[in-house]
């Protein structure tokens, strides 16, 4: 399916599906890149997310109807082009992120384990053996929504969000997982910490994530965590309730 609808005087949305599916997210992400590269002058934002591509355009450089027919052509050509497979390979590249899964960096490990009647070791093993796909980036700069968490450990958000979490916290919310790139409030179940910096406004790109990218988590030891620049956070208790 493909449907293009206006949302405001300067924006439209392309809908490519109506349910969450990581393969569709890969397609959405690469199509968004293609659109961003193909008509940069009149487009202000191109934001893919799960099943949609949101586009903000400059009102003096184009209009909804001109853009709609242009986008339809681009999307058709994208699906018909011979190098479609190359493009799919390109976007299916994988990054591996080190994670120190532990009670001192992941205070919700026991809650997640208990929720499924499993051990903490099971939770770590199941979380780190899957390959995830970036389905959307938002909430805060560089925050990537990764799907899909194995239903054996998928756990609802905490009933009360924490007022502050340290950067690098790895969380689970239902079938999604993510790494908080910066210190932030958050309600996800925290199971570990990734010591690698995931957002830097001085770098281009500022974040390693893009919609459609594959992500794996590699469990690391306490020593490796410190060697990679990880630091422990002493405020879990004091910031938990507020």
């Amino acid at each position: 399916m493909m449907d293009i609808q206006p949302v405001s005087e300067t924006a439209l949305i392309i809908r490519l599906g109506d349910h969450i599916d990581t393969q569709l997210a890969v397609k959405t992400g690469s199509m968004a890149d293609h659109i961003r590269n193909s008509c940069s002058s009149e487009l202000i934002e191109v934001i893919p997310s799960y099943t949609t591509i949101y586009i903000q355009y400059h009102p003096l450089k184009t209009d909804f109807f001109a853009l709609k027919s242009r986008l339809q052509g681009l999307v058709d050509a994208f699906f018909l082009s011979d190098d479609k497979d190359d493009r799919a390979r390109e976007v299916s590249k994988t990054i591996t992120l080190p994670v120190y899964y532990s009670l001192e960096t992941g205070p919700d490990l026991p809650e997640v384990a208990q929720f499924h009647n499993r051990t903490v070791a099971d939770v770590i093993q199941i979380h780190s053996q899957s390959t995830y796909v970036v389905c959307a980036i938002g909430f805060s700069p560089g925050f990537a929504f990764l799907g899909s968490v194995d239903s054996a450990i998928a756990t609802p958000r905490k009933s009360e969000p924490r007022k502050m979490l340290p950067a690098g916290s790895v969380g689970i919310a239902d079938q999604q997982t993510a790494v908080y790139p910066s210190d932030s409030p958050g309600g996800w179940q925290i199971i570990g910490n990734c010591p690698v910096s995931l957002i830097d406004f001085d770098k281009t790109p500022m974040s390693p994530f893009s919609v459609g990218l594959s992500v794996q988590f590699q469990p690391i030891s306490r020593d490796e965590f410190f060697a990679l620049g990880g630091t422990l956070w002493s405020h879990w208790k004091s910031w938990t309730r507020g």
């Binding site: 949302v7 924006a11 949305i13 934002e45 997310s49």
Partner: peptide, 10 residues
């Protein structure tokens, strides 16, 4: 709804 891009003034 499935999270989607938000326009100014939405």
């Amino acid at each position: 709804v499935i999270s989607e891009g938000i326009a100014l003034g939405a």
